[in-house]
Every structure is written in structure tokens, then in C-alpha cells.
Simulated assay, not measured.
Amino acid sequence: MNKIGAATLLLTLTAGLSACTQVTIPEATGDTWIRGLDVSEAREAEAAGVQFRDRDGTVKPALQIVRDHEYNWVRVRLMIDPDVKAYGLAQDLPYVKAVMRDAKKQNLKVLLDLHYSHWWADPGNQWTPERWKGQDLTTLSASVYDYTRDVITQLRDQDTPPDMVQIGNEINAGMLWETGRLKWESGQLTTGSMAALVRLTNAGATAVRDASGGRDRMPPIMVHIAKTGDAAATVAWYRAFIDAGGWVDVIGLSYYPSWHGDFSGLGETIRALRSNFTQTKVYVAETAYYWDKNQVGTTNLPYPETPQGQYDFLQALTPVVKDAGGSGIFYWGAFWSQSSRWLNAPGWKDDDASRRSLFDDDARATVGIDGLK
């Protein structure tokens, strides 16, 4: 792999990566509504002996079930040096390369979710992997570039390039802490530097471009945060990111009603984003709903915690996103079933994700699998 030095990278980024309102967005997504499932756990579960069953009880490969239910995209996360035997974090590069091959066989497009961490990346966890600890901003940006370029190159070399790339996961509090940490209060950045975060995310976006052979051949870059319940704060975040020179082709949001409020807030957020960033598509990159009661209890839920409630939630969610101008939805944790076979997580008291899977405890698809239309 041809690597780029830190000084050259700095020049590349300083040259000015255009913000989303100023560029021609790659059209890998087209105008087709995205019905997507996050399949990150499926291969690990199957390797541990889980046999996923369709609605009629027929055992099928996980990604065949995805295709048979007319989903057109999948999402898979990629970790850096994870403990592949613990906490559901099997998604190192060899694992993801295998998922990409499986997806291509089923003619599914793929959103590659780059966590840039060895651990779950979310607003409360954005930990720098051990291999990069202690690096200053310039060196860390170069590390992000080199790593990302190598990932995309390896995927292209096996003829499975991603169709969209997510630079970081739920990065409203930044990523690669402490260097890229942000803190927001009342819609205002109070701690950290958006410019520093942009140096890191732009390094990843530039690497995707370079590994893809140029701007016209690269997949769209998604920037994904979890502030859905507050339209003004969400717009303010992306405005600050873009004003700092951040590269974002499409916007990704997380939406879980227990954390992010009701449908009206989601619709308002999407409409506000589409109004402020008119050339930028907006996706719900993560959502999920309970088919069974969570063991510790969950509040602010608009539907019963039953298979039918899960289905009804997803049926109601789709028109909210469409009517607000959104372009698709990805369901998170779709294959998180029979986790006792494959999940080693002694620090977790509650396997919450298993109650939100699209498969029950017999690994049989719930009615919710047909909820997204």
C-alpha cells in the first residue's frame, strides 16, 4: 500500500475538502429508498451454531433472509484490534471482508461503519485503540488515513467495495478521545475543537477517495450522530462541522424512542436538516424496537413490547421518515438472537439487544422483519 506522510496529509486536508452544500454527491445511493439491516452479529452467531429461521420456520443463511424480505442494503461495523471473543465485537477486518463477500453474493449494497475504536463507539464511548494511543493530532490523522486507505484497498482488491462509508459512529461527542473529544451544552460547543475532529474525519474521507481512485469513483461519506430529539441542536452540530471544513455527503441519525423522543421530533429534525442542507440526503442509520420486554425496564415506548408492537412501530416509522424528506432506514442489531451461544459479556447485566432483534429466542424471524416498507 502506498502510504501518505503526515506532512503530505496535512497539505491535502488544508487544500480544502468541500462541505456537503458545495459538492456533487456520489450517486451510489441513487433515488431508491433504502431498507437496510445491520448484520454485524449475524456471521458470528451462525459460526456459533445459531440457525436463523424465516417466518415459516425454514432455516436459511442470514443474508438470504435479508434478501428474501426485500431489503436492499446491509450495514456492518468494523473495529480496530477488538477482542473478537467478547462483547459481540468480532468485527475485525477478516470478519468484515467475509461479510462483504456474503453481501455481494446476495446482491446487497453495504454501508461500512468505521468505528475507529476497539470498543463500541457511541456518544459515551469513543476510545482510541491501543495502537494509536499517545499520538498527536497530526500523527493520529495520518494513522486514520493509512488505516482507512488500507481497509478500502483490501475490500476493493477482493471486488467488494463498500457502497457507502460511515466515518465514525454516533460522533456527536467526537471520536478518538481525547484528541477528538467534543462536549455540547444547549446546542453550543463548550469543550474541544470541531476543527480537530474535522482533521480526523476528513483524513478518513480523503483515504476513501484516494483508495477508490478519485472523487467520481468513491462511495458517499456518511457522518452519523445521535441527537435526533433536538432539531435545532442537530442542525447546529452539522453547521459547525461543515463550517470547520468537514466532509459530509450524507447525514446519518440514530433514532430510539426511549432516548430520542417521539416521531414528531424525528420528523422535525429531518425536515430541518433537509431545509438547511438541501443537497444532502438524510438516513436513519440506526433504529430498533422491542419484540419482548427488556429485563430492566424501558420507558417512553410508543407501542407494546411485543412482536406486533415491533411491527407496528416500524410500519409507523417509515412514513414519518419519508414524509420529512428522509431517504432510508437501517435497523440495528437485527440478528442479535440466541446470544448465550456467542456473546461473552460478563460486565453486562442485561442483554437488551436480544429483546430488539428481528429474531426471537428460537432464532425465528418476528413479524417485525416486514415492518419496514
Rank of each mutant, 00 (worst) to 15 (best):
R43G: 00
L13P: 04
Q51F: 06
A15T: 11
G36H: 01
A6F: 05
A42P: 00
T14E: 11
G36M: 01
V59W: 13
D38L: 03
L10K: 11
I34T: 12
Q22M: 07
T21H: 04
A7D: 15
R55T: 12
L10V: 08
S18I: 07
L13G: 04
A6E: 11
T21G: 07
G36E: 01
T14F: 06
S40Y: 10
V23L: 13
W33V: 06
D56R: 04
R35F: 02
L11T: 12
G49M: 12
D54K: 03
R35I: 01
D38I: 01
T12W: 11
Q22W: 14
T12P: 00
T24A: 13
L37V: 10
V39W: 00
T14V: 09
A28G: 14
L17G: 10
P26S: 05
A47N: 10
A42E: 01
T21D: 09
A45D: 00
E46Q: 13
C20Q: 11
L10S: 11
A48G: 03
D38Q: 01
D31N: 14
E41V: 11
D54R: 00
T32V: 12
T29N: 03
E27S: 13
P61M: 05
A19T: 15
R43W: 07
V59S: 06
G16N: 06
E27Q: 14
A6Q: 10
L10G: 07
R43F: 08
L17P: 03
L37M: 15
L13S: 01
A45F: 00
L9R: 06
A19Q: 13
R55C: 14
G30W: 02
L9D: 08
A7H: 12
L17N: 02
L37I: 10
G36A: 02
L37R: 07
A28I: 06
L17T: 03
S40A: 15
G16R: 02
R43H: 10
L11D: 14
E41H: 15
L63R: 06
V59D: 07
A7L: 13
P61E: 04
C20R: 09
T21C: 05
E27P: 05
E41N: 13
E44V: 11
T24M: 10
E27G: 11
S18A: 15
E41G: 03
E46F: 07
A7C: 10
R55G: 14
W33K: 03
A15I: 03
A15S: 14
P26D: 01
T24D: 11
S18Q: 13
P26H: 02
L11Y: 12
T24Y: 05
K60Q: 13
V59Y: 13
T8M: 13
K60I: 04
I25A: 06
R35A: 05
T29D: 09
V50A: 06
I34A: 04
G30E: 09
C20H: 06
A6P: 04
A62D: 02
E46D: 08
A7E: 14
V23P: 03
P26I: 00
A47P: 02
C20M: 12
L10C: 07
A48R: 08
E44A: 04
T58M: 14
E41L: 11
R43N: 12
F52W: 02
V50T: 08
T32I: 08
T24S: 10
D56K: 08
A28Y: 15
T24G: 02
R35Y: 06
G57F: 09
G30R: 05
T21M: 00
G16M: 07
P61D: 05
T14C: 04
